[in-house]
Write a protein that binds this DNA or RNA. Structure first.
Lengths: 212, 212
DNA sequence: CTCCGGGAAATCGTTGACAATTATGTTAAC
DNA sequence: GTTAACATAATTGTCAACGATTTCCCGGAG
């Protein structure tokens, strides 16, 4: 029963239905989901550990607001971990994996040609997630799931940056080529340049948001 | 009240008082700590998220057993993150920080000369922890805390490896020099070689434990 | 008009009890 | 002697209620 609350809240927070800093009142959520308050409480504790929720003693829980600085921090950590993951992916990948990644890449290309940036961002997420599955590294996988869930709000912003879509596609293609070739060094390098450019784009949009 | 249970269990697990795979019965713990079962339950949920405890539906919680493979995984993730952290440390460090690190290093040297490996291992932990504090990177700090707590059982083994102590000291000294010099590239490189050698030592002792 | 205090409402923290599930032990049949 | 079925115990899952804390609102004094 606690899982119900967890899944629901997870989706609502990462999906944007719940705004940052919005209060999460145990009783309300319990009534809404038709479960007990204790179950909601447990879900909130789990979400707090994952960094999606902030709980303060006697003051309840809120959707955690991820500051720009923190977003950069998270991206930095993610870069370090995802570079290791992509190395493993380059060594583990099967021919089927390569086909799947290629398919995702061409799907992404289609969306970009059609100008559908949100769909492209979606495929982008799938591409990265698939790479991590291929890496088959449970620890890194666990950590990256945490980090990514906190970044979703920012993630779909970066691809909206002017001029970003075509280079993003090229960067992903470079990652794909290296993984397909089974070259961990090249894969890591490609991933590193990709994510550092995402970070750069993020900083840029953040700066623009501050002084428009 | 839940924090009491959390702190106690955390210390007992990382301190080795509770053996891996040992059952953690909510009611017993609650009585022992003089608190309610719900508080214990909350603590167990938090510990599960941190990877110290494994909970199975309707079958209770156990101290999580970290396999050798997983220890290597964790070490790999830790390497990636700590390399980033040490870069920041090299850029952020103040003169006081340098003095502190130098003091820790000489303390470590003393312990090794005296042959007190456990004390040396302790200072080793302090050294790494201090570096992370200096890095001032909340996200990486959070992740590393999780990873390290799972490794403590293995950590003090690696320095016991024959021939390891002197090279370990040299590796730490290299990290220190780079951080003191404010050279992030050198710091990262030094940290990387250090941790890869720790991983190598870990694999070696693990192999020996398998076939003595 | 502003600021301070008091009281009510809202919400969280904690507890104990009950239901549901899994583990254990015992007996009987083969 | 071994296994199957059953009863019993141990443990977790769920819930509703009570007490504690914070927040909010309102009236009165300055």
């Amino acid at each position: 029963m606690s899982d119900v609350a967890y899944d629901r809240l997870y989706d609502d927070i990462t999906g944007g239905k719940l705004q940052p800093n919005e209060r999460l009142i145990e009783l309300d959520l319990a009534r809404e989901l038709g479960i007990s308050r204790a179950a909601v409480r447990n879900a909130l504790i789990r979400l707090e550990q994952e960094g999606l929720v902030k709980r303060e003693p006697n003051r309840g829980a809120r959707v955690r607001l991820v500051s720009e600085e923190e977003a950069v921090e998270i991206l930095e950590a993610r870069m370090a971990l995802e570079c290791v993951a992509v190395r493993h992916a380059a060594l583990n990948r099967t021919p089927e994996d390569i086909d799947e990644l290629r398919a995702l890449l061409s799907k992404m290309e289609d969306h970009l040609k059609r100008g559908d940036l949100l769909a492209a961002s979606d495929v982008n997420g799938q591409f990265h997630r698939r790479l991590i599955e291929i890496a088959n590294h449970s620890t890194i996988s666990r950590l990256l799931k945490m980090l990514n869930s906190q970044l979703i709000r920012f993630q779909y912003r970066t691809i909206l940056t002017p001029g970003r879509p075509p280079s993003s596609l090229a960067e992903h293609r470079a990652i794909f080529e290296a993984v397909a070739a089974g070259d961990p060094d090249a894969a890591e390098k490609a991933m590193r340049t990709h994510l550092s450019r995402v970070a750069k784009a993020l900083k840029q949009t953040a700066a623009e948001a501050r002084s428009p």
